[in-house]
C-alpha cells in the first residue's frame, strides 16, 4: 500500500510540474491543459485511437519488464521495434497470397528478428561482460539507420507521399470504427496476463526474479544465470519487435520512417512505473498513451509543443525509482 501511495505521489508531482510548465509556456494555459488531458477522451474517435496505441505499448513494456526483472536494462527498444516492424511488413507482403494467416507468420518472424538483436547484447554480456545497456543502445542506433536507409531507399513505396514502405494487404480487424482500434488490444491483454502467469507461477519467472534480487545468491542456489540472461533478454527483444509488428497491422499499415523513435523509452517508463508487474502495465500504458495522444491534440489546437508528453515521461522517469518516495528502506536495485 505504501508503494501505491508513493506511486500516486510521483504521478501527482509530475502532473503538477507539467501543469506548471504549461502555465509558463502557453498563452492560453487552460485550453492547453484541457486539450492535453481531456482531449483524447472527448470523442469516440480519439478515444479509440488512444486505445489502439495502448496495445503495442503494453506488449513492448512487458518485454522491457522481462529484462528489468533480472536486472538487465534493454535500451535497444527503438531499434528492435523498428526492425520488427520492417520484418513484419516484408514477410506479410511476401506471404500475402496465403491470406490473413500471413499476419501470424509475419509477427512470429518479426519477434525472431528482435530476439536475435537482443541476443547479441545478452551474449556479449555473458561472455565478455560488455554492459548490455551500451551494447543494446549502439545496436539500436545502427539498426535504426539501416532500416531508415531501406525505407527511404530500396523499399520505399513510390506512390506514397510519406517516407514509408509498401502497404501490407491485410490488417487486424477493426472493432471500433471510425477509430483505428483493432483486435490488437485483445492480443496485448492476453500477453499481459500470460506473462503475469509466467512471472508468478512458473519456474522461469521465479528464477528470473531471484537473479534480479541477487545474482550470486541465485548462482549459489543452482540457477544458471547466463541461461536466464539469454532467455530473458531475447524474449525482451522479441516482444518489443512483436509490438513493432502490431503497429503495422493495427495502426500504420506500412513502416513510416522514424515511427518507433522514443517508444522504447516510453516502454521503459511504463514498466518502471508498473514495478515490472504486467497487470499494472495495462492501465499505465493507457495513461501514457493518453498523454501522448493529448499532446498531439494540444499541439494542433493550442500553442504548446507535443513534446510536453516527453517531458511528462521524463519527470516521472526521474522520480520513479526513488526509494524515499516509494517508502522502501533500500534502493530499487537494477544493476
Amino acid at each position: 500500500m505504501r508503494k501505491l501511495k508513493g506511486l500516486i505521489d510521483i504521478f501527482l508531482i509530475s502532473i503538477a510540474l507539467l501543469i506548471g510548465i504549461i502555465f509558463l509556456m502557453s498563452k492560453s494555459p487552460l485550453n492547453s491543459i484541457y486539450q492535453l488531458f481531456i482531449g483524447p477522451l472527448s470523442s469516440p474517435y480519439f478515444f479509440g485511437n488512444t486505445l489502439s496505441h495502448t496495445a503495442p505499448l503494453i506488449i513492448s513494456s512487458v518485454g522491457i519488464a522481462i529484462a528489468f526483472r533480472c536486472n538487465l536494462i534493454n535500451l535497444g527498444g527503438d531499434g528492435q521495434m523498428y526492425v520488427g516492424a520492417l520484418v513484419a511488413s516484408l514477410v506479410a507482403i511476401y506471404l500475402a497470397p496465403f491470406g490473413k494467416i500471413s499476419i501470424l507468420f509475419a509477427l512470429i518472424i518479426a519477434s525472431l528478428s528482435g530476439a536475435i538483436l537482443a541476443f547479441i547484447s545478452a551474449y556479449l554480456k555473458v561472455k565478455l561482460d560488455t554492459p548490455e545497456l551500451i551494447s543494446s543502445y549502439l545496436i539500436s542506433i545502427a539498426s535504426t539507420y539501416f532500416v531508415s536507409y531501406l525505407i527511404t531507399g530500396p523499399l520505399q513505396d513510390p506512390s506514397s507521399n510519406l517516407q514509408s514502405t509498401n502497404k501490407v494487404d491485410f490488417m487486424l480487424e477493426k472493432i471500433y470504427l471510425p477509430s483505428n482500434l483493432s483486435t490488437a488490444i485483445f492480443y496485448a491483454l492476453i500477453i499481459a496476463f500470460l506473462f503475469y502467469y509466467i512471472f508468478t507461477q512458473t519456474k522461469f519467472g521465479y528464477e528470473n526474479k531471484i537473479i534480479g534480487y541477487n545474482k550470486e545468491f541465485a548462482r549459489y542456489g543452482g540457477i544458471s544465470v547466463s541461461k536466464n540472461y539469454y532467455i530473458s533478454f531475447s524474449l525482451s527483444g522479441a516482444l518489443v519487435a512483436f509490438a513493432g509488428g502490431i503497429y503495422i497491422f493495427g495502426n500504420y499499415q506500412s513502416v513510416i520512417k522514424g515511427f518507433s523513435s522514443g517508444i522504447g523509452f516510453s516502454a521503459l517508463t511504463i514498466s518502471l512505473i508498473a514495478l515490472n508487474n504486467p497487470l499494472a502495465i495495462i492501465p499505465i500504458a493507457f495513461i501514457i498513451s493518453l498523454v501522448n495522444q493529448g499532446s498531439i491534440m494540444a499541439m494542433q489546437n493550442s500553442d504548446i509543443s507535443s513534446d510536453v508528453a516527453l517531458l511528462f515521461q521524463a519527470i516521472i522517469f526521474l522520480l520513479i525509482t526513488s526509494s524515499t518516495l516509494l517508502g522502501e528502506k533500500k534502493n530499487v536495485k537494477l544493476n
Binding site: 536494462i73 545497456l133 522520480l319 526509494s323 534502493n331 530499487v332 537494477l334
Partner: peptide
C-alpha cells in the same frame, strides 16, 4: 530521493 542512478 535515493533513486537508481542509471534511470535518473
Amino acid at each position: 530521493l535515493k533513486t537508481n542512478p542509471f534511470i535518473t
